[in-house]
Design a protein around this nucleic acid. Structure first.
Length: 526
RNA sequence: GACCGGUUCGUCUAGGGGUUAGGACACCGCCCUUUCACGGCGGCAACACGGGUUCAAAUCCCGUACCGGUUACCA
């Protein structure tokens, strides 16, 4: 039997990091077992569901490249079927009409529930509903008279629900601990637990993989499956992802850092984020951190899922730790080690959106196949002096990206920190000016002078540049670092980056000269 | 409150009767270097607590503490 799993978010916000991981695990399990990954939007609560949210969720899934196999299902479209099931149970005596008037929840719903539970301590039987045992005739009559009623499942008097959770093991719950849950609201609207069970049956779901917050719901759902006479699917509940204080990670309290689109917009690679997510609550039991999607698919098992919750670690008021540092590291790791050919399209998109892209960077067909296939960043020789691509060409673009990616963390860095490589209009980091220029006033004369030395050079290779700069340094009786760092600041606007010789060569002779002579940075320091 | 679940370095985790308790991120130090957030080497750092079982417990059992989930005519 082929496995069929579903990711079933409710459209009440953007794609949350926890939901994203649930989607990932469902996807991985489906692909690992050669099954289908389905998507269902749980919009039974029309009042809270929004189209905007559905769009955002779809967008997040698209970014993560978790494509669903069959047509998207909207739960609200199946309301009639859900209702029919409830009515069937009513007819069979497995459910009953509850004529208790509906009470509107007020204030903090959660708190109200807990409060009521504490107050009802010991006095209330979960199933002491006065309408549970009224006669069929009375029930029918009152209903016929137009008296509003909810339909509740009649939980059997004694016994327990039992199921084997693929993650948490054997789960048992005494019927006494489960109330007669409402299947249909008094306005005829089907409720979550009913809807989920009906849809999962309809969609022939074999494995329900979802957050641990549904673990107790599973007992209620098993009850519905039993009443309906259908064998329940396999349940696998996932540990929760917590905030640093080990509390709930919520959209309201933690805002954008839990939204998938935040990461997309911050310049994360989907592959890196997926990799990070996969390792949050799951492990292949080996000392390895970097997994491609293909590897994850092969290695994924429900048995590798943990039972304990994981903390998503970040510090709200520390910009460097705005999100989990391991996620940041993972992204940097991908940027600097993935095959350059795979990275290029992302850099292109980033440069385009920053208006830094130029058509000259577009590959000719020949160049593309050559570069992409010969990409083993492991043992590619360092840029050679005799191999200087024409500035601004496709080859130059590839070489430049490869050079500067070493110290980048996100795709955004290509258009911010790396801006000077692609544009004449770049900013100067005040700290860099302070550290590398202001401290050495002589540089204001020296650097333009160095530019003059570059002028007559025919061969602007790293070796040739090195020779000129070294001679110049000696002549001035200063240290190489002073010249190099001053030049770095003028040429790139920042204090960090690759070897200056590579930078000179990459920026090119003409631009290097221009920038060394530019007084903009100097003027800025005043 | 009740029911359910969890607890290995700060964080993500490996290990599940005998290990110097391993890896990754972060942090610290050294090296490389013209700077650096790359790289290399090294370091700091954990089995929640108390009982039991056992020759031997981080690992099995019981209890305690703490944390989390659920307890809706929400999903």
């Amino acid at each position: 039997m082929t496995t069929r799993v579903r990711f079933a978010p409710s459209p009440t916000g953007y794609l949350h990091i926890g939901s994203a991981r649930t989607a990932l695990f469902n996807y991985l399990f489906a692909k690992n077992t050669g099954g289908k990954f389905l998507l269902r939007i749980e919009d039974t609560d029309l009042a809270r569901s929004t189209e905007e949210s559905t769009r955002s969720i779809l967008e997040g899934l698209k970014w993560l490249e978790l494509e669903h196999d069959e047509e998207l299902v909207f739960q609200s479209n199946n309301a009639d079927k859900h209702r029919a099931s409830a009515l069937k149970l009513l007819k069979e005596g497995k459910a009953y009409r509850d004529f208790t008037p509906k009470v509107e929840a007020a204030g903090d719903v959660k708190e109200g529930i807990a409060e009521r539970a504490r107050a009802a301590q010991g006095v209330k039987n979960m199933r002491d509903n006065p309408y549970r045992e009224i006669s069929e005739i009375e029930s029918d009559t009152r209903a016929a008279n137009g008296e509003p009623f909810a339909v509740r499942l009649k939980v059997p008097d004694s016994g327990k629900t039992v199921f084997e959770d693929a993650v948490y093991g054997l789960q048992e719950r005494d019927y006494n601990d489960t109330e007669d849950l409402v299947l249909l609201r008094s306005d005829g609207h089907p409720l979550y637990n009913l809807a989920v069970v009906c849809d999962d049956i309809e969609m022939q779901i074999t494995h329900v993989i979802r957050g641990q917050d549904h673990l107790t719901n599973a007992h209620k759902q098993v009850l519905i499956y039993e009443a309906l006479g259908v064998t329940p699917p396999v349940f696998a509940h996932l540990p929760l992802i917590l905030a640093p204080n080990k509390g709930k990670l919520s959209k309201r309290k933690h805002g954008e850092i839990v939204s998938m689109t935040t990461y997309r917009d911050a310049g994360f690679l989907a592959a890196a984020f997926r990799n990070f997510l996969a390792l949050l609550g799951w492990s292949a039991s080996e000392e390895k951190e970097i997994y491609s999607m293909a590897e994850l698919v092969v290695k994924f098992t429900l048995g590798g899922i943990h039972r304990s919750n994981a903390v998503f670690n970040f510090a709200e008021n520390d910009p460097r730790r705005w999100t989990d540092e391991k996620a940041q590291w993972m992204n940097a790791e991908y940027i600097r080690t993935m095959p350059i050919g795979e990275l290029l399209p992302f850099v292109k998109a980033e440069l385009k959106s920053a208006k830094l892209w130029r058509e000259e960077y577009e590959p000719e067909l020949r160049a593309l196949t050559e570069t992409v296939s010969s990409t083993d960043s492991e043992d590619r020789p360092a840029t050679q002096a005799f191999d200087i691509p024409e500035h601004g060409s496709y080859d130059w673009f590839v070489q430049t990206v490869d050079l500067i990616r070493q110290r980048f963390f996100t795709l955004k860095d290509f258009s911010s920190q790396g801006r000077a490589y692609f544009s004449e209009d770049y900013d100067f980091d005040p700290a860099a000016i302070q550290k590398n220029l202001a401290k050495f006033p002589d540089l204001q004369q020296w650097l333009p002078e160095l530019a003059d030395r570059f002028e007559p050079m025919e061969d602007f290779s790293e070796a040739a540049i090195e020779e000129v700069v070294k001679a110049f340094t000696e002549e001035k009786g200063t240290k190489l670092g002073v010249i190099m760092n001053g030049a770095r600041t003028l040429l790139t606007g920042v204090a960090v980056g690759p070897s200056m010789l590579s930078v000179f060569q990459t920026i090119g002779k003409d631009k290097s000269i221009l920038r060394l002579k530019s007084q903009i940075a100097w003027n800025k320091q005043e």
